[in-house]
């Protein structure tokens, strides 16, 4: 494997997104949402203005868990199938580059664009809020940003995988939406439904492990368990053993969620 070939493809993908203002648009969306949530998150309780980082992060987690997977899937769904459908893939494959290098180049370039916009978006909001944050709060906010980047990278990996499997862009976009529905909306409902229907007889013990099978849940657990005040707000913490909530372990699970779809995509792309 030649790193130079990967960085050449990655660099093109990254600068494409900078040039077409995709990164700027997403960063602005993140900044706007973060500031609105920080200042108006408590409006329903009759007050506005920044209150506490715990509550702000809890609100941001609720938002990000919907938004980032969707953005990542939109970003990556046509990474390979788009090139194939436009007819530019053959030319790329005729170069002295392997399919794995193309795949990784595409992934890392898009991941860099998503990471840059996430860090820039939430970073600007963090700078605006920083006069009101102590070191501990800043640490938690940084942790939230890092986990948001990981969440984006996991869904981007899934998007690139389905981009390899799909026969055309229309199918790829349909699969991306289906994936988003499944992981973000349906997965938890199915688990809870199974628990309730069986009166807790089925799945009770493996329930925490099943949550790890969804990167969106891993992200939620990572953030919920990091903040004492937030932990009490979530019923989830009562069924999830604290030993499994180790941030390093959850971080590794997120990395596995990045590596596995890319591995499958690479296998399929070589076929």
């Amino acid at each position: 494997m030649e790193i130079k070939q990967i960085t050449t493809v990655a660099s093109k993908e990254f600068w494409d997104r900078i040039r077409n203002r995709w990164v700027l648009a997403v960063a602005l969306v993140f900044t706007a949402f973060a500031l609105v949530i920080a200042y108006f998150g408590a409006a329903q309780q009759g007050s506005v203005g920044f209150h506490a980082i715990d509550v702000t992060i809890a609100s941001l987690v609720s938002l990000v868990i919907y938004l980032i997977p969707l953005i990542a899937l939109i970003l990556g769904f046509d990474a390979i199938v788009g090139e194939r459908e436009r007819g530019s893939l053959d030319l790329l494959l005729s170069m002295p580059i392997t399919r794995l290098e193309i795949l990784l180049g595409k992934y890392f370039g898009l991941a860099a664009a998503l990471t840059f916009s996430t860090v820039a978006g939430f970073g600007v909001a963090g700078i605006v809020l920083s006069p009101q944050l102590d070191l501990n709060a800043l640490f938690h906010y940084f942790g939230f940003m890092l986990s948001s980047v990981l969440l984006g990278c996991t869904f981007l990996s899934l998007a690139v995988m389905l981009s390899v499997f799909a026969s055309d862009r229309t199918r790829a976009s349909g699969l991306a939406i289906a994936l988003w529905f499944f992981f973000v909306l349906v997965f938890d409902l199915l688990l809870l439904g199974a628990l309730v229907v069986t009166g807790g007889q089925w799945g009770g013990e493996i329930f925490p492990y099943l949550l790890l099978a969804n990167p969106a849940d891993v992200f939620r657990i990572l953030n919920v368990f990091a903040l004492d005040d937030v932990r009490t707000l979530y019923g989830l913490t009562t069924v999830f053993p604290p030993t499994l909530a180790n941030p390093w372990l959850l971080g590794l699970v997120m990395l596995a969620w990045i590596a596995a779809p890319l591995g499958i995509a690479s296998w399929r792309f070589r076929k």
């Binding site: 130079k4 040039r19 436009r86 530019s88």
Partner: peptide, 23 residues
């Protein structure tokens, strides 16, 4: 290739820079 498809958002020179790096 037949009906060559290149990258619309790159300039002609950038297109060749990209392929020259790959080659």
């Amino acid at each position: 290739p037949e009906n060559v498809v290149l990258y619309d958002n790159l300039t002609g020179l950038e297109t060749l820079h990209f392929f020259s790096r790959l080659k």
